[in-house]
Amino acid sequence: MVGELVPILVLLAVAVVIVAGIIGLTHLFGPKHPDPVKLSPYESGMEPVGEARTRFSIRFYIIAMLFVLFDIEVVFFYPWAVVFKKLLSMGSFILIEMLVFVGLLLVGYLYAWKKGALEWD
């Protein structure tokens, strides 16, 4: 029921209030003496070099894409695990279908591994 979601709502409200409170209060009471050096971007104490928006390596894309795909795979595991016991009493079909699913994705995983997509260099 929607009524059961009230704890989530309370949690969200507390989170918003705490974050807004901390940021708002520091903004109100914090001393502000800006000068050009203070406002410059902090780069580990060094003089800032170049700009923030440099071109990222395509490897990040591969990592992110693989993460999304295996993330979705894990999402499918969850309802499977929940109904596993119930459907196992009707035969081992539930086990076989997940083995086929994982087997197909294992092919993808081995492909990624062999192609060196999991290595950084």
């Binding site: 894409m65 693989l66 197909l104 994705l105 993808g108 492909y111």
Partner: peptide, 10 residues
């Protein structure tokens, strides 16, 4: 579909 996605991304 996920397998195709993995291979395509790589």
């Amino acid at each position: 579909l996920l397998l195709v996605g993995i291979i395509g991304a790589i």
